[in-house]
Write a protein that binds this DNA or RNA. Structure first.
Lengths: 166, 166
DNA sequence: ATCGATGCAAAGTGTTTGCAAGCCG
DNA sequence: CGGCTTGCAAACACTTTGCATCGAT
C-alpha cells in the first residue's frame, strides 16, 4: 500500500513536471492526504486540517490552490453533493466514468458504487438527444442500510449529522 | 396559460393555508416568476431581479426565504449543478422523480429529459446495496447538438458563456 | 535573477439571520 | 392584541485574490 502510494505520487510528479508545475512539499502533502483517505469525500477544510497535522505551516489558500490545480489537471475530481461545499476525491484511473454516490439523508454517510450503471442509459441519451456525453453525475438520496436497521429496532436514526440536500 | 397559472397559484395558496402559511404578495410574485420561467433553472438572484421588475420593494432575503419555504413544502425543487449556486424549478406534479439534466459545457445550456431512465438502475441499487432510494440526481455534462454542429462547420462553439445557466 | 509557489489577510460570493417595523386575522 | 412576514443590514461559510516573500532553478 505504501509502495503503491509512492508509485502514484511519482506518477503525479511526472504529470506535473510535464506541464511545468512543481510537486512542492505542500502539494505532495495534500495529495498524500487525499490518497490516504481515498474512500472519503473530503472538503477543502477537511484536507487542510489533515495536512496541517503533518505540515503545520501550510495555509488554507495553498490547499485550495492545490486542489484547484489537481482538479484542472484531472488528477483529482471536484464533486458537489448540493450542500454548498466542494469535495475532492481521486479520479479512478481506469473506470473514471462509472462511479456514483449513495447519500444517506439520515446520517449523512456517502457510499460509492463502482459499477457502470449507465451504459445503456448513455447510449439512449446520446442518440435520442444528439448530446455528446463527456461525463455524468449520478447521486441517490435515501436511507442507508444502517439507518434502516436502526429505525426498525427503535425508531431512532443512527446519527443526526448532515443536511446534504438538493 | 394564464388561466393555467391562476389554477396553480390557487392550488398553492391552498397548500400553504393548509399548513398555516400565507400566500403573501411577495410570495405570490416569486411563484409567478418561477411559473413564467418554468423552462429555466433560475438562481435566487435571477428570481430576485425578475420579481423586482414587478414588485420593486421586495428584498432579496424574502426571495431566499420564499424559495426555501416552497422547497421545504416540496412545491419547488432546489437543484444544484455543481457550480456553487442553487437553482430552483417547479416540481413536476406527476413524474416528480424522473427528470434529469443535460448541461452543455460549451454554451452552458441546460436541457431536461423527462423520461424515466433509472427504473432498472434503482431496482438494482436498492437490492444490491440495501439502500432505500428516496430521490436521485442525474446530470450529464457534454456537448449539445447545436455546439456539435457549430464545431463541425467552423470549429467554433456557438457561444462562450462559461456559466451554467438557462 | 527569475519565476512560480506560498502564507497571510483581505476581499468576494452566495446565503442566512437578527431585529424592529408592518400586516392581518 | 399575537403571530407570521418583511426589509434592511450585518453575519456567515466557503472560496478566491493581492501582495510581499520565499525557494528552486
Amino acid at each position: 500500500m505504501s509502495c503503491y502510494m509512492e508509485e502514484r505520487i511519482e506518477k503525479i510528479r511526472e504529470q506535473l513536471h510535464n506541464r511545468s508545475y512543481k510537486l512542492t512539499p505542500q502539494r505532495e502533502a495534500t495529495l498524500r492526504v487525499l490518497l490516504e483517505n481515498e474512500e472519503d469525500h473530503l472538503t477543502a477544510e477537511d484536507v487542510y486540517l489533515l495536512v496541517r497535522d503533518k505540515s503545520p505551516d501550510i495555509g488554507l489558500a495553498t490547499v485550495y490552490r492545490t486542489l484547484e490545480l489537481m482538479s484542472d489537471l484531472s488528477i483529482i475530481h471536484k464533486i458537489n453533493f448540493g450542500d454548498g461545499v466542494s469535495r475532492y476525491e481521486f479520479r479512478d484511473e481506469d473506470a473514471e466514468h462509472h462511479h456514483h454516490h449513495l447519500i444517506c439523508v439520515q446520517c449523512g454517510s456517502v457510499n460509492e458504487i463502482h459499477e457502470d450503471l449507465l451504459g445503456e442509459v448513455e447510449k439512449s441519451v446520446s442518440s435520442n438527444f444528439h448530446f455528446k456525453i463527456l461525463d455524468h453525475r449520478l447521486t441517490f438520496h435515501g436511507i442507508c442500510q444502517k439507518c434502516q436497521e436502526a429505525a426498525e429496532q427503535n425508531g431512532t436514526p443512527v446519527v443526526k449529522k448532515a443536511n446534504i440536500s438538493g
